[in-house]
């Protein structure tokens, strides 16, 4: 695959990535609404895909995009996700039209560019949720107890998004989010 990419003059990525799309059809089970769109493993194929899909800010409420390493499904229950967690960015409603698409694109670039250095292997993927009450973007990592790795990823992510020091982001373990009551999630780390 690497040779093929190079022969074609494309830039190979460290990982093959899978883009998923979720549309909330209440007449179906949750998993039936989650669809694999396609997979890619070069920079050029990423851009070809990105330029062909709808911007996140134009999706209907209840939709999600997810980008995960090949072999990892975008759900807590996946073996590679279940001990992990996520750095969560919650946006105000007005940010959908000003910053959402930029934040999501920067998130995707962090992933495919392996911008978390030696901790890039800890990254599983990223999810964007389009919701009426406020959109959310999250980077998912594989091991919530890996403080060093999780905080490095959070620090680099926050820097790449250009969030000011006054804006706090929190990391939640999936195990805690799955058992939470109401809308209060337990935050393991804050930056």
């Amino acid at each position: 695959e690497l040779l093929q990419a190079e022969v074609l003059g494309k830039h190979p990525l460290q990982n093959r990535w899978a883009l998923w799309f979720f549309k909330n059809d209440k007449s179906k089970m949750w998993q039936a609404n989650l669809r694999l769109v396609t997979k890619f493993s070069t920079v050029e194929d990423f851009w070809a895909l990105y330029s062909h899909i709808q911007l996140a800010s134009k999706l209907a409420a209840g939709c999600d995009y997810s980008l995960f390493k090949d072999g990892i499904e975008p759900m807590w229950e996946d073996n590679q996700n279940k001990r992990g967690g996520r750095w969560l960015i919650t946006l105000a409603r007005q940010q959908r039209h000003t910053e959402l698409d930029r934040f999501w694109l920067d998130t995707l670039l962090c992933l495919i560019g392996e911008m978390f250095d030696e901790y890039s292997d800890e990254v599983c993927g990223a999810v964007i949720n389009i919701r009426t009450k406020g959109d959310k973007i999250a980077i998912w990592t594989r091991e919530a107890e890996n403080r060093e790795g999780v905080t490095h990823i959070g620090r680099v992510y926050k820097e790449h998004l250009g969030l000011s020091q006054k804006v706090a982001i929190g990391y939640q373990a999936h195990a805690d989010t799955a058992t939470k009551s109401g809308c209060l999630g337990k935050t393991k780390f804050v930056l």
């Binding site: 460290q14 920079v43 070809a48 560019g113």
Partner: peptide
């Protein structure tokens, strides 16, 4: 040996023919 790309490089090639 890890394949890393920075943001500027990735954005620079967004509209190259092979990407469209």
């Amino acid at each position: 040996g890890k394949k890393q790309y920075d943001r500027e490089f990735l954005l620079d090639i967004q509209f190259m023919p092979a990407c469209i």
